[in-house]
Design a protein around this nucleic acid. Structure first.
Lengths: 215, 215
DNA sequence: ACCTGAACACCGTTCAAGT
DNA sequence: ACCTGAACACCGTTCAAGT
């Protein structure tokens, strides 16, 4: 799961332990109650002083970034697994299902992607890795004739985010409603239904820039 | 635009003036910078003390609610205009365009719908009015053969919210990108592309309940 | 009746003092 | 090196004192 770029100098034993506790406590709290749980409460849950929290993560956003990065990396890895599993009929659709399911279950992740955490370099790198994986899945789907050819990986990310965001309020009362809207997206992506789309498709760079500048 | 249920007892002249100034200042500030502009700043922009702001709107949420209600009422009225204009080929699609465009232009509105302001009774009433208008538009579209028959007005609201939310980050760099995703939704809604959707469709009551309980 | 700014509780963030 | 809680600026909200 955790893909640290550089091991850097190892932390002192207690610091390392505190860091892990903070990440675990934050991941849990954010998933359950969204990103507006206070750092003070996360520190308390982790059993450390709140000063310690800000020593490890100089800003709350960096703490969020750490956790979002973990999730994105995990998703990219899962996407590559799907690509290697040759028995799957429609790996792209399976992947979109997982993307949405994770956003629906993890409120913090849903609030995190599309927030300014995407400006964080480590998060951007993980996001790019995810995009590249989706590009492979889209290409595969297009070769198999499952997916219209005027659709890109950026579109897939945008669409899954849309399904998750749109389903969000209804999910409290109908937890599986997102499947309905994923089904509609599936219908929209089939080659038979393709009619010309207006404007030029968004590029990878435009998405990255948009996410980073957003706010 | 403003559809006050009961005129009640009229306010003192200065109070009425302050109320209007607060609403105008808030509408402008929320549209530009989203819902997290402080009440203090809105009061300052309106030229009143911040105590006055809380006298007119006992909570920040009520101030937001007032503005969201105005927008929803305006949208419902516009929808009915579309229904009466017999020259339009696809009034539902035209209406979805306006729904999305407004959410993209007005950050406060986008953040407001789907937040807990929908718990406010006056907002719920305006929202219900909007839903009923969309139901007429959907029925019209289905009669004309433009729209698949397993789609409801609730779906339309959910989908437009999804398009607006998904396009949001990209809009900074490509302001018209939402048209692309509306085009995809248009393709998904055409009867020819219809394949069975999983689960039962969400009802009006479920949407209302979801929006109100959300948070 | 309505207006106002000072006061309160809570948040993110900083830092002097400890080990 | 790292930990800690008290301190600061800012937010939403309340309220005693004014007109």
């Amino acid at each position: 799961m955790a893909a640290d770029m550089e091991a850097a100098r190892p932390l002192r034993a207690d610091a390392e332990r505190n860091r892990r506790r903070l990440i675990d406590a934050a991941a849990e709290a954010f998933a359950e109650r969204g990103l507006d749980v206070s750092v003070a409460e996360i520190a308390k849950r982790a059993g450390v002083g709140q000063g310690t929290a800000f020593r490890h993560f100089p800003t709350k956003e960096r703490l969020v970034a750490e956790i979002v990065r973990d999730r994105l990396t995990g998703l990219a890895a899962f996407g590559r697994e799907l690509l290697e599993d040759s028995r799957r009929e429609d790996p792209l659709l399976d992947f979109m299902r997982s993307l949405i399911e994770l956003q629906v279950q993890d409120r913090g992740l849903a609030e995190g992607v599309g927030s300014s955490v995407l400006a964080d370099p480590a998060v951007r790198e993980a996001h790019l890795e995810l995009l590249r994986t989706i590009e492979l899945l889209v290409a595969r789907g297009q070769e198999a004739g499952n997916v219209r050819t005027d659709i890109s990986a950026v579109d897939v990310i945008v669409l899954t985010k849309g399904v998750a965001a749109a389903s969000d309020p209804l999910c409290v009362v109908k937890p599986r409603i997102w499947r309905r809207y994923l089904d509609l997206v599936r219908d929209a992506l089939r080659p038979e239904s393709a009619r010309p789309l207006s404007g030029r498709p968004p590029t990878r760079a435009e998405l990255e820039r948009g996410l980073a500048e957003h706010h």
